[in-house]
Structure formats: structure tokens, C-alpha cells
Design a binder for these strands. Sequence first.
DNA 1: AGGCGCTTGTGAAGGCGTGCACAAATCGCG
DNA 2: CGCGATTTGTGCACGCCTTCACAAGCGCCT
Lengths: 240, 240
Amino acid sequence: MLPDLPEATVARLPEYLRALHNLAEAGHETVSSEELATAAGVNSAKLRKDLSHLGSYGTRGVGYDVALLVDQIEYVLGLNQRRSVVLVGLGNLGHALAGYAGFASRGFRIAALFDVDDEIVGQRIHGLIVRHLDELPLVAAEDPIAIGVIATPADGAQSVADLLVAAGVTGILNFAPCVLSVPGGVDVRKVDLAIELQILSFHQHRKSNAAGAAALTALPGGLTGTGTHHSTDAAEAVGS
Amino acid sequence: MLPDLPEATVARLPEYLRALHNLAEAGHETVSSEELATAAGVNSAKLRKDLSHLGSYGTRGVGYDVALLVDQIEYVLGLNQRRSVVLVGLGNLGHALAGYAGFASRGFRIAALFDVDDEIVGQRIHGLIVRHLDELPLVAAEDPIAIGVIATPADGAQSVADLLVAAGVTGILNFAPCVLSVPGGVDVRKVDLAIELQILSFHQHRKSNAAGAAALTALPGGLTGTGTHHSTDAAEAVGS
DNA sequence: AGGCGCTTGTGAAGGCGTGCACAAATCGCG
DNA sequence: CGCGATTTGTGCACGCCTTCACAAGCGCCT
């Protein structure tokens, strides 16, 4: 029976798994929560709580059996079942994703590549022929598709998502910079390089302002939102 | 003055910004929290609370001025300052990232490309010559590097990170599947395709087991009739 | 066999984030 | 000028996640 895992825990399990694989290759048979936590870049208490949600697979005074834990996590994540992945959109990014080695190493199999551009359809990319998006239903009929990866421009992403959903896909990984609307029961995860860069930018901006900000923080006025303060000068006055 | 924003809010601001740019192009001059929230794929209350952290830039009964809000968010994120980005590792993924249009569109400028492979160094990729990683300090001396993007295999990533830090980089975006250790004050964000796939895999595994479980759970006292209903998953999963 | 050191698993507390629901504020219209 | 429609900004409650601290359990050594 599958335990009900907190979402935050689920997001960390793959990281633990990768660390465990490394440890196994290095010859470790057991590992303490402290070691594994360090290898995975988290707090040891958090790691223990995460693993405790899977059940008691550790031995007090000793640690966790590496091989056993690998099996458990892989089972919980459903990685022992092979899942078919299709990739839609073979521009720069899609091309790179098609050649990504990380697919096969975790039980994922690229079943097909799709695009709509006649220049790209028919090309052979990393051993697979790019097919036209119209053929997606055919491919899905032959072999159920578990996960669809969208690497198209933003304006085509929603219609691709609709096609994927219609083909029975219940998990979508979206690299297009847009919001997808999908029916309930379909899981969408988004990866956006630009967003990550902007978050980094924010932290740098904050750090660089932190020094001078301390001198300005003594704002006496404004009790409760007396809206006389207008925004434009705020933006410009601060930007030094 | 830069307000102290909750991390969750910061992570959503770029999404709001993108939605606002779309609205501006579509000719909207003002937008209500409801509209903007829908466009950004979030709850309207959450959006209002997020924006309230920046200050009061809306007008009750009317909504938000699109142009003003764009300026505010860009200011807070530090996007009006152009930041130099260097990209290390030009394999499949790095090659695609070098051609990513999203860099320039948000004020980021690719300052240089680096690799260590003699086959790759010297190549011209999307208008830039790939330089040897050894030259990184030289480039950093000419023009301060804000952000370093690591797209190398895992085994080289830590040493690249060390080099970047030594060159004064304070923000790192890591595509390598490994944990980086960096000194305090340096911000690392990680993007891992394999992790995202595994999270999707988990949800599918859970769903497929829930179906079987639902058949077995003939709960006698079930008044509500709807057992474990996860229709909101899709909406929440949008925020990665 | 017994005690000691080590490590897991977990109860409890605190912090953070989310969403509801409503008061405050603004605009347009009669 | 006043009123109603509309929308923002926010107090509050709730739930999730993190972290601490420690009891419970296991193996080893004497």
C-alpha cells in the first residue's frame, strides 16, 4: 500500500535516490541519516522525517541499508514501472532534451518525438525520427503515453497540452513560458529558465541594496495606508 | 527601499510579470486582481497579498495599472539593471541554453560561454565563441559576472562552481544533477529534469494505486460520496 | 549478560504560506 | 453631492513544513 506522502517529501525523494546511487557505487552498504542528508544537501532531521513516511527502513545505531532504501524509494516513486515519455517541440531545447541521458537512467523511455514544422518533421534526432504532431493519437494508441514534455514556444503550448490530454497523458512537464489549463487529474509541472534567473536577480538586487538600505529605513510617516503617497516617485527615488 | 518579500512571493513575481507583459501587448491599461490571477495561474487572494508586499500600487474599484505594475516588479526583481550571465558547459543542454531567447528578453546578457573540451572550445555558438574555462577569471575581471549557469556533467559541476565563486559570482543556476556547496552569500538554484519526471511518476503511481484502492474502499459510513478528490492538483502543480 | 554509545523515529513547537471574508476606498451616475 | 457597484488590501484562522530535542532501539565490547 502506498503511503500518503507530503508533497515536499516527494520533491526530495529523487534527490535522496541520486545520493543513494552514488553511495552504492562508492561501496557503502549502509548510511547514516547524517551522511545521506549531507550528500543530498538537506537537514538530517528532515531526511529522517521524510524517510519515516515510507516506513521504518532504518536500523537504530546503524543507519539505513542503502540497497533496501533504493528499492523502497524507487518503488514509491513508481520507477520500477517503465514509463513512456513523448517530447513535443524540437527546437533548441527539445533537441537537447531528446539527447538527455537522464531519461533512461531512471526508467523513462522516450517513445516518440513530435513537431509541426516541416523542416523538422522527418529528421532523425538521437536515433528517433521526428513525427508530425498529428500522429500523436496513433502513437498513443499503440503504447500508452505516461508523460508528455512540452518544449514548444508559448503560443502553441496550450493546444499541445490539449492534444496530450486527449491522448490520455496524465503527467505533463512544461518548458514553455505560459500557464497551461488542464482538466483535473492531470498533473502539470513547469520548468522555466527565465523565472529562475529572475529569482536570482532579485536576491542579488536585495543584497546590493541591503548595505545602503539601513540608512533609509527610518520612515516615520504613514500610520495605516494613508494613500497620499504615490508610486512613481517611490520607484524612481529609491533607484539609486 | 526594497521590501522584505516572502520567498514564495518572489518565486511568483516573474510569472506575474510575464502575464502583465502579455496583457500590455494586448492593449490592457488596467487589470483586476482576478484577471491577472487567472492569467498567472494563481488564486486572486494570493496575488493581491503578493502585490501588497510591494506596496499599494492598485486602485480600489479599478484594479492595477499594468505599466506601473510592470515597472514596480521589474524594479523589485532588479531587472532594470542588465546582468551578465556566463554559461559553462556546452553539451547538448548548454548548446540549447546559449540559444535561449528568454535571456535577452528580461535584461540578461550572455557575456561568455565556457567549456573545457578542446573539441568545443573555439566553436562559434549562437554568435559567441566558446572560450576555455581557464579564461573565466579574465572575463570576470573585464566585466563583473552576475550569474553563472552550470550545464556540465555532475562530476565537474562543483569545481566549476568554485571557479565561479572565486570570480565573484553570487548567483548560480545549476543544471547538473548534484548538490553544490558554496560559501554563504552565494545563491544557488537547481533545475533537474530527472527530478521533475520522477515527481510526475510518483503522482501517476499514486493515482493508479488509488484507483485500485477506491474499488476496495467500500466505506459504510460514506455520506459525502466523494472520497479522495484531487481535482485541485492541477491548479496547484502549476507553481513548481 | 549487561552496559554503553550510536542512530533512528517521533512528539511538540514555531514559522510560513494559503485562502476566506470583509472593511476601506475609489469611480461613475443620477 | 450622495449612493451603489466594484475592487483592493488585510486580519484571521488553518494547515503544512521545518526544526529541535529526546526517548526507544540496536549492536558491540567487556
